Amino acid sequence: MRRIWRIGIALAAMVAGAVVAVASPASAATGSAAVVATGYSHTCAIPAGGALWCWGGNGRGQVGDGTTTARPAPVRVGTATDWTALEAGTSYTCGLRTGGALWCWGANTRGQLGDGTFTNRSAPVRVGTASWATVSANDSHACAVRTDGTLWCWGFNRFGQLGTTPDVVYQTTTPIQVGTVNTWKSVTTGYAHTCATRTDNTLWCWGDSTSGQLGLGILSYRTAPEQVGTATWASVTAGYTFTCGVRTDGTLWCWGENGYGQLGQTGIYQTTPVQTGTVNTWSRVAAGDNTACATRTDGSLWCWGNNMAGQLGDGTTVNRYAPARVGTAATWAADFAVSYHSCGTRTDASLWCWGNNASGQLGDGTTADRTTPVVVTLS
């Protein structure tokens, strides 16, 4: 949950470094994935070919298979083969299909599915008829950018996370436009805050900032987008009450709550962006709850923050206050997702997951937590 966009990975052949097990050619073929999203206790992925697979906790229908039965192994969702993007909220999921159609399913107690109701859905339902470019979902609100560059949000709005004052809209079951700007590029949602970039790569945030997660130097909230400094950003992600981003110069910055080291350093909360380390070869960052992971241009994957269930993938359950490398593999691709469990794809299209597995969200057929990545087979 909480990442700006999901993009397909290149399928170029590269040598993979082992983490737990090296997928055989057969398992890499059947376990391939180009897109992955993680909720609190469920996971969804799109392999090459555009089919949709989900697994894990399903009490609110977030797996999307028409039931509320937990799935410890991947199950196919519908028969469509044109899925292109995914985003998982706490107990719901949203996805895009070819042509820009947006579909959501799962928990809907705050209208976060955007379908005009408060009814939970155990199978995908379409959100209006507009064409969408990217979507982000978190606990009880979601936002998406349309192909015309406008930005829309829906769900809960207690802290102005929908980009308007709660006095006007406290919650909404259908998308409402954020301002009138039509140059939005990407969006990411935290528990009660939202950040988005524009086509000029400037960063704008709004909603709750009681832990400094807007990066505006405040400990209150904002009900409309405000620009975060003057830097330009390549990738931004919202965690529970913190935010991280990679600037266009390859440096990594985080701000907000830091109780678990989720800013990638020691110390208290930060109300403005602070640099994580000195490396300038970061390529993309993703956050979920109180954990974050990022890739470097050399294909390595690094994680930090809360590690109580092994979601950092470093073989321990020790919280990390600085980025810790996940194994020795140098073939991690652009798409990975972070929550109390984490999943990522490699350049050979294999899918790997680790961390909390109480509901079978790792997709390995068990409910045992994993502190290092295990390969997931989609077949």
Score class of each variant (00 low, 15 high):
R2K: 13
R3Q: 13
I9H: 07
A18K: 14
A18Q: 12
P25C: 07
A29E: 14
G31M: 09
S32R: 13
S32P: 10
A37Q: 10
Y40L: 15
P47Q: 00
A48N: 14
G50L: 07
A51C: 06
W53T: 07
W53D: 05
G61D: 00
Q62Y: 05
G64N: 10
G64A: 08
G64C: 10
G66K: 07
T68V: 12
T69A: 13
R71Q: 13
D82E: 11
A85I: 04
L86F: 04
A88L: 02
T90I: 15
Y92A: 13
L96I: 11
T98L: 09
T109Y: 15
T109N: 12
Q112M: 11
D115I: 03
T117P: 04
F118W: 12
S122C: 05
P124Q: 08
S131G: 14
V135A: 03
S136H: 05
N138Q: 08
N138L: 01
N138H: 10
S140W: 13
C143N: 02
T147V: 12
T150A: 01
W152N: 06
W154C: 02
G155S: 09
F156P: 09
R158Y: 12
L162H: 00
L162S: 04
V168H: 11
V169M: 04
Y170W: 12
T173P: 10
T174C: 06
G179S: 01
G179P: 00
T180K: 11
K185C: 02
S186W: 09
V187Q: 03
A196I: 02
T197F: 00
T197I: 03
T202L: 07
L203K: 02
W204A: 01
C205N: 07
W206A: 02
Q213L: 00
L216P: 04
L216F: 04
G217D: 08
G217E: 06
T223P: 06
A224I: 02
P225F: 01
P225T: 01
G229E: 03
T230W: 09
A231T: 15
V236I: 12
T237D: 09
A238F: 03
F242L: 02
T243S: 09
V246D: 09
G250R: 09
T251F: 10
T251R: 12
C254L: 06
G256T: 05
N258H: 03
N258Q: 02
G261M: 04
Q265I: 13
Y269M: 14
V274F: 08
G277Q: 05
S283W: 07
R284S: 15
V285I: 11
V285T: 04
V285S: 01
C293E: 09
T295Y: 04
L301H: 10
W302K: 08
G305T: 06
G305A: 01
G310H: 03
Q311M: 09
D314I: 03
T316P: 04
T317R: 12
T317P: 08
Y321K: 11
P323S: 07
T328W: 01
A329Y: 10
A329S: 15
A333Q: 12
A333L: 12
D335F: 05
D335M: 10
S339N: 14
C343E: 08
C343K: 06
T345Q: 02
R346V: 00
L351T: 03
L351N: 01
N356F: 15
G363H: 00
D364F: 05
G365Q: 01
T366V: 04
T366H: 08
T367N: 09
A368T: 13
D369L: 13
P373H: 06
P373I: 04
V376S: 00
L378C: 06
S379E: 13
